[in-house]
């Protein structure tokens, strides 16, 4: 596929950057002329991945999160969210809906479930001690198809 446009954003893992990250990503994705529902899906999936990096990957320190978004012509939105945090030992377990490592019980354990169901494709690669990379794509249906 031809990469028509891309953006790269690096932010420290501070929780106030969650809103900024998803706003920046959705503003970029607007280039594909998505519907409100598609934008909400991308916004939520981005928010989940960035929050995971903040809450889990960098649980006890501030580190960088790199967000790479691409528009793959004609209609695919691609996003990769990468951190150099603690990594995930058991990805399958981490992706199980309702599974959470947060003891105080305020995390729903639904981050990956949201990413999986709101985007078309989700791929997670991780190395304990090295970091985690979450790649997602979503096909944005053209206005003609929707009408």
């Amino acid at each position: 596929m031809i990469i028509n446009n891309f953006m790269r954003l690096i932010i420290p893992s501070r929780s106030q950057n969650e809103a900024f990250a998803r706003a920046a990503v959705t503003a970029f994705a607007a280039g594909l002329d998505p519907t409100v529902e598609e934008i909400n899906d991308i916004k939520a999936a981005t928010s989940e991945a960035v929050t995971n990096s903040i809450v889990h990957a960098y649980a006890d320190r501030i580190g960088n999160i790199e967000i790479l978004a691409r528009i793959l012509e004609p209609d695919i939105f691609y996003i990769r969210i990468k951190d150099k945090g603690c990594g995930i030992a058991d990805i399958k377990q981490a992706m199980t809906p309702l599974f959470t490592t947060c003891a105080e019980g305020e995390r729903a354990g639904l981050g990956f479930a949201v990413m999986e169901s709101f985007m078309d494709k989700l791929r997670v690669t991780s190395k304990p001690g090295k970091g985690t990379s979450v790649t997602m794509t979503k096909r944005i249906k053209s206005r003609y198809e929707q009408n």
Partner: peptide, 16 residues
């Protein structure tokens, strides 16, 4: 205007 799964955590925690 927007929520992610943190909103679900909010509901579950208050229910608890």
């Amino acid at each position: 205007g927007f929520m992610d799964s943190s909103g679900i955590g909010l509901i579950l925690g208050r229910r608890r």
